[in-house]
Nucleic acid binder design. Structure first.
Lengths: 346, 346
DNA sequence: TTGAAAGCGCTACCAA
DNA sequence: TTGGTAGCGCTTTCAA
């Protein structure tokens, strides 16, 4: 069953994709009319019988318009490109993404998540630019530089946003300053009397872009506090053995308060400390981050830093505004809120 | 600063997107030559100086080819479309997705996740078909029917896969039979002596496509077992109050074993039972699913059903094979493995 | 070794 | 109310 690409020669019925010309032929009208009918063009009035014939023909053939052809003709797309972050995002982040995606689709944008695996900077930007997105929302870890932003703009992108820890020349920034989480954690521990503060550094590679700034924020605050407060970095892999090893040498560390990067690492460490007979918060106060349900289920209940991300609706509005007025000065929008929540572990 | 769309009139330098014609002009060659050079067309030999001039011109203009134009001309794309599941997928699933995405990109496919929010069945299929993907991997919950599959195929999709609980006429199926998880859980509980088995049904809407089949599988096995074994459905929302309410009436339920849908619900329920003074596994045996790290951190350590998904590599190979030979009979590939892991809670 | 030109599917302008 | 047709950006055949 050879496939004959030459369409005029022989319709290999099964796989010949119908075009608007086919619809026109079947309906006995011109391609223009087909376009008018199927797009409900208001500038042109088409008689009811004609409309019906066109619709029937389209349905019979299983006609679906060709997005590429359409956008080629239109000279622009409604695609908002969200390169998938390489980082395994937690539930908080995924929810934020979903909401944003939903909100954007309310504005009639087509949200496309594009896995540009391995590429970074300008190379990635070029790959994205091939799709001619009207807007790009790039996760912080994509390593977009000013030149990469330029590539995107020159390819017609009206709005380029970075969402992450720092801003990039020429792009709007949804600044998510993870250091703030460390700040809140440190303040909380200091207020409650800790002076020698440990900070868990996950050994999992992918988490570094989150972990480093959280730790850095903690250090900032502790250092700024003076009075001889200290910081100790505690590398920890997300498994029991690693946690047990850390717990075994815990008392030699002289740490009286610990920020565990997030609630899951907190649970891991709390269990290990308890198995070692170390009292939380008696000997060591503990605070996590993300305010997951599991924190409330621990005993003692886990203190945490709650993170607030902006509503997808607001962000979608912002994106839309920039798309409509690309001349806007790139703005910096500080969107990550963090609050310490006291429970029983600190 | 008005924008002048008329390109020939005046290059509004900042936003006029360069085309291959612009590159040709700047390099002093024809568009054909540009195409040859930039695509490294082996059938044609271009002199080194010309190549250089073309590359320089392209770089200077920041030229990026237009994917839509290219695929329009080519008559096909290398896009593999993965509609984003509405369901908040757990870490297991996201990892599986990422791996698959990566593997596909090794085959030179462009993986696009497309948020077709709210659409289902034929409607969704039409939206997807507009992108003319060469393959579609649709999550089970998209509600693809035979007609929707047909829409995709008629739009040129060479391979249509469903990944989910059931197969669809005309599509290849990556069958992920969640019932199997319930089967294993039930077998495990029965073997260890439970006769009155509870099954947690998460009240969270989005989880239903996973939760129902898991519960159903459990019921199958328990019913098949005979000997007066019973099943009790236990609706539970993912919060402490709901769990406390369930725990409060626990003893009236007469349940001596429970399958908690997954490890997170297990943790929630275990805590609530313990707060109520109900011994696990003494009074009630418990088994979760997903084999998350947190299960090992609970006391008693949580028994669980470990889920195995196939490697992204294998799946990518399969997709590629079908794309290259679209005539293949749609196959059913049973890809979800489940094994009970005994720890201390059962 | 290079260029001219056709044509992928679509929409919108202009004419009938 | 409808049709003819140019042209979006690209690749590829054919000719020079």
């Amino acid at each position: 069953m050879a496939q004959i690409p030459n369409k005029s020669a022989q319709q290999t019925a099964q796989y010949a994709v119908p075009t608007s010309a086919d619809v026109a032929r079947l309906a006995g009208v011109s391609r223009a009319t087909v376009s008018y009918v199927l797009n409900n063009t208001s500038a042109v009035r088409i008689s009811e019988p004609t409309r019906r014939r066109v619709h029937e023909a389209a349905k019979e053939l299983g006609y679906v318009p060709h997005a590429a052809a359409r956008s080629l003709r239109a000279g622009h797309t409604r695609v908002v490109l969200m390169p998938t972050p390489q980082i395994p995002a937690g539930p908080l982040f995924s929810e934020f993404f979903n909401e944003l995606q939903w909100a954007l689709s309310r504005f009639d944008y087509t949200v496309v998540q594009y896995g540009s695996l391995g590429l970074t900077g300008e190379e990635a930007a070029r790959a994205w630019a091939e799709l001619r997105p009207v807007a790009v929302l790039a996760p912080g870890a994509s390593g977009l530089g000013a030149r990469a932003v330029d590539v995107l703009k020159r390819s017609g992108a009206k709005a380029v946003f970075t969402l992450g820890p720092q801003r990039t020349e020429g792009a709007h920034a949804l600044l998510m300053d993870q250091r703030r989480i460390g700040n809140r954690a440190a303040e909380h521990l200091l207020e409650r009397g800790s002076r020698h503060i440990g900070v868990v550094i996950p050994e999992e590679q992918g988490l570094e872009p989150f972990a480093r700034p959280r730790a850095e924020g903690l250090r900032q605050t502790v250092t700024g506090h003076g009075r001889g407060a200290t910081v100790t970095e505690l590398p920890l892999a997300y498994d029991e053995e690693s946690a047990a090893r850390l717990a075994a040498r815990w008392r030699t560390l002289g740490v009286d308060g610990v920020f565990t990067y997030n609630d899951e690492y907190a649970m891991l460490l709390m269990r290990a400390l308890q198995d070692e007979g170390i009292a939380v918060p008696g000997e060591t106060a503990m605070i996590g981050a993300d305010d997951l349900v599991l924190g409330r289920l621990l005993r003692p209940r886990l203190s945490t830093v709650r993170i607030e991300l902006p509503s997808g609706q607001k962000l979608a509005e912002l994106v839309d505004r920039v798309v409509r007025d690309p001349g806007m000065e790139p703005g910096v929008h500080d969107v990550l809120g963090a609050t310490a929540v006291h429970r029983e572990s600190s």
